[in-house]
Every structure is written in structure tokens, then in C-alpha cells.
Design a protein around this nucleic acid. Structure first.
Lengths: 130, 130
DNA sequence: CGTTACATTTACGTCAACGTCAAGCACTCT
DNA sequence: AGAGTGCTTGACGTTGACGTAAATGTAACG
């Protein structure tokens, strides 16, 4: 292992985020890199948190939700209360995502109908032109 | 038929939108109600446009996209160029929606995995407590 | 010492689609 | 005339997740 500490550039490479994003997350108290003078050094812990942040974002959690969950983990270690809270939040999110999926399905089906209609019209134009 | 013209309130009732929304759409040149002094009177044409606006929104088109399409229809009457443009835009949107649905599916599957994991942990805690 | 290549901070800007006042006019009822 | 209601305009606020600009620092290279 090299140093176990990573600069902001290395982090950006590794996680495909911009420096602005990492500083932003720090300002929102999602990350706590070591401040070596004016520079940042990201620890293993920061990387673990960032992984969870990015995963959470994929699931559609807000940064504020994520922050609260991470903080809970920090306080409780790995106790039941926070696990249950995480679990509940995740179930809510899942429900929301499935609702969204259903709506998207309807919209897609409708749009396909409209497309069929459009093709019909185009065909009609084509035959008129011929 | 009463008057073929509707007040802002009637429009709100009929389309389940707020007055603010209608004024906003007018400011964005999506609607062109008659200005009777200081008040608005929405014509059949406005209603047709609003229907298309709301439909477009359901499909995820931006208001700007919608405005451009509506303007095209106004200019071209009902010619092939605009029909094709609409058709192409709709196909793009459909592709985007299907991509989005695929990503959502992955996220849902992942989240379900995490949930299963969470249940496992909770069960472990429960048995420890017993 | 100068240049290059990063790093930092602060603060304001962005995007979408409206919401939320505040303040005033227009009309009706009494 | 006063009260009440509805409609108007205009400007600023909201939300989330950063982007962008400007001014400055600092570290290593040659």
C-alpha cells in the first residue's frame, strides 16, 4: 500500500467526480478529509463514505438523507436503531422508485401510441406525394 | 355552447392547474389568451395547446421543447417537415425514457439486494436480543 | 527567479417550473 | 360607500447539486 491517503486529484480519478464535488461534499459535512495545511487528504474512511454517497445517489436519496444516515452510522457504530432506520428509508425509496417506474411505463406506452399515429400520418404524406 | 371562451378559473378547474401556471405558460409564449382589458380569456386554440403542453410534460419534454413544437405547428400548418420533426423528437424521448427505465430497474434490483442484506442483519440482531 | 501546474477560498450563477408574497384594480352585493 | 371576492402584475424565493469566476497560494521544476 502506498499511503492510504489520497489527494483530491486521485480521488477524482478514482471515483469520477470533480474537485468541486468533493469540496462541496466536505462543506455539507459528508466527508472529512485531513487538512494538511490548506490541502485535503482523503482517508480510507472518506473513501468508504464516498462510496456510500454515490450509491445512495444512484438510489435517488438526497444528499441530506445520506448525510443523516452516515452520521447515524458514526454515532451508533452498527446498532439496530440505525440499521432499522436505513432499512425503512430504503423501503420508502424503493416504493417511490417502483411508482416512478410504473408511471414511466404508462408514459412510454402512450408515447408509443402517438408514434404509431405519427407513422400513419407520415405514410399518408408519402403516398400523397407519390 | 356557452361562449367557447373560458376564464382562468374555469381553465384551472378543467385542466387541474393553478392560475400561476397558466400565467407562467403565457409568459413563456405557450399560450395566447385574449386580453379583455386586464383579464384573460382562453380560446379553443389555447385549450388545444394546453392539452398538448400537459401531454408533452407527461412524456418528459421540457416546456421549451414543447414551445418549439407548437410554434412549428403554427407556422407549417400541418406539413411533413414538422410532423417528421415531432416524430424524431418523440423517438429521441422514447429512447431516453427507455434508458431511464432500464437504469431505474437496475437501481431497484440493487436496492432490493441491499434490503435483503438489511433484513438479514436485523434478523441477526433480533436473535442476539432473544 | 520565473514558469507551470496545481491548489485554495468566497461568492455568485445555473436550471426548471413554478410558489409566494405584496399591492392594487374590477366587480358585485348590500 | 364599504366589504368581499377574484383577478392582475412584478419581483423575489424555492429546490438540489453542483459550475464558474476571480483572486490568491504554494510547490516543484529547471
Amino acid at each position: 500500500m502506498t499511503t492510504d491517503l489520497m489527494t483530491i486529484r486521485e480521488m477524482c480519478e478514482a471515483y469520477d467526480v470533480t474537485p468541486r464535488t468533493l469540496r462541496f461534499y466536505e462543506s455539507k459535512e459528508l466527508l472529512f478529509p485531513i487538512r494538511e495545511g490548506t490541502r485535503r487528504l482523503f482517508t480510507k474512511r472518506d473513501r468508504a463514505r464516498l462510496t456510500l454517497i454515490l450509491r445512495g445517489k444512484r438510489f435517488g436519496f438526497s444528499l441530506e438523507d445520506i448525510r443523516q444516515l452516515l452520521d447515524m452510522y458514526d454515532r451508533d457504530g452498527s446498532q439496530e436503531t440505525q440499521l432499522r432506520r436505513t432499512y425503512d428509508l430504503a423501503r420508502e425509496r424503493l416504493a417511490a422508485m417502483e411508482t416512478q417506474r410504473a408511471e414511466l411505463d404508462v408514459a412510454i406506452a402512450d408515447l408509443k401510441d402517438q408514434l404509431a399515429w405519427g407513422e400513419e400520418m407520415l405514410a399518408r404524406f408519402a403516398s400523397n406525394a407519390a
